[in-house]
Amino acid sequence: MSKAQAPAADKPKKKKLEAMKWSNAWKLHKEKYLMILPFAIIFICFTAIPVLVSIVMSFTNFNMLQTPDFVALDNYINLIVFDDIFLIAMKNTMLFALVTGPISYLMCFVFAWLINELPPLPRAFLTLVFYAPSISGNAFVIWKLIFSSDMYGYANAWLLNMGVIDSPILWFETAEYIMPILIIVQLWLSLGVSFLSFIAGLQSVDKTMYEAGAIDGIKNRWQELWYITLPAMKPQLMFGAVMQITSSLSVSNISTELAGFPSVDYAGHTILTHLNDYGSTRYEMGYASAIATVLFFIMIFANIVVQKILRRVGE
């Protein structure tokens, strides 16, 4: 205690100034702080504190029943050195994110851009068509019927009918098919918030810029896109990237619903299914928190790197 207070006592003036600054701020902006307060309380209790608790718990062996012991880095060492299944999950998640992240991002942009040139009615209709899968909740289970392993599954039926195969393919029972199918389904689901954000961004680009651009010698749609549209909607592009990265790293539901848990040879195993396994089946909360912490830092890191890259585009 005394050690902690000693340096603070050296700067009572600074502390006092700091306190004055905040009390002044409170007096000046009381209403604003009060308006933020309800949200802030909920955010701190159910987002900020949980992140910190998760990090702290990852250094313990908490199991919900006994008092947690401090085990230092044991969980992380077990995770990275001894847990072979985690390494599979890691590899799958990275592969998955590296494929679906960029492709879904491009899809969101390209479709928003193409739709934007249409008259209002077809535009509204196509927006709905592309956006519908992402809001259809559990409707992706229809893919289970499409890739069903018997001859009544749509994919098998078409292939059989066209004579490509002569016996049904066991889609979700064959390790090498699982990942490609999950990627297709994720892409189907991925035209979500970013897509809407891009549509809104494109609509808010100042139309006179295009006229000015044409006078300045822009010859085709690609130049228009690169020199006018993209720079004008950079904020939406950054936002869309965050959304796509976060969602492509947090795949678990479609994997467990479609490929089952555990999937054949762990081919559909992701960091998040691994986390759910330890968190809600085995109740090894310390270990699960270590997984959650790793995932948390992967997400933040990936996002910050991509933000840095996107900021440079068009400069």
Partner: peptide
């Protein structure tokens, strides 16, 4: 900026502490 950073991860990573709280 805290709000912007909080978009970069989702509720799945905080589910366990959330349950405890």
């Amino acid at each position: 900026s805290i709000i912007t950073y909080s978009l970069m991860f989702n509720g799945t990573v905080t589910a366990i502490p959330n349950y405890i709280i």
